[in-house]
Simulated scan of single mutants.
Amino acid sequence: MNMQLDPIDRRILRLLQRDASVSHDDLGAQVGLSRNACWRRVRALEQAGFIKKRVVLIDPDQVGLGLTVFLMIRTDRHGPDWLDQFAKATRDIPEILGAYRMTGDLDYLVRVRVADVAAYDTLYQKLIRRVEMADCSASFVMEELKETTELPL
Rank of each mutant, 00 (worst) to 15 (best):
E144H: 05
R10F: 05
Y120W: 10
V131C: 03
R14L: 06
H24V: 03
V117Q: 09
D19S: 03
D116N: 15
A99E: 01
R10T: 13
S139H: 12
I73W: 02
E132G: 08
D76T: 07
P80G: 09
L67S: 11
Y120F: 14
L15G: 03
D116C: 10
T148I: 00
K146I: 12
A20Q: 08
D105H: 05
I73V: 15
D61M: 11
L106W: 04
H78A: 11
V112H: 04
W39G: 10
D19K: 06
R113W: 02
A44P: 01
A20C: 07
I128C: 06
N2H: 09
M3F: 10
S34V: 01
A89Y: 00
R130P: 01
D121C: 06
M72P: 01
E150K: 13
A20H: 05
R14M: 07
M102D: 11
R91I: 01
G98N: 10
D121I: 07
F70S: 12
L83V: 07
A48Q: 11
D61W: 06
D19R: 07
V55S: 09
G64Q: 13
I51T: 05
I96M: 02
M3I: 14
C38L: 11
V117D: 06
R10M: 13
A134R: 15
K88L: 02
Q85F: 00
L45M: 14
L57S: 01
H24K: 10
S137N: 14
V131A: 04
T103Q: 11
M72Q: 12
L33T: 07
T90M: 03
Q30S: 14
R40A: 07
P60K: 08
D25E: 10
D84G: 08
V55W: 00
D26G: 05
R18D: 08
V31D: 13
E143F: 07
D59I: 03
C136G: 06
Q62L: 14
S137I: 13
L123C: 09
A87P: 00
V69Y: 05
A44G: 08
Q17C: 05
A29K: 15
V110H: 02
L151N: 06
D105K: 11
Q17L: 04
G104Y: 03
K146Q: 14
E95M: 03
G28K: 10
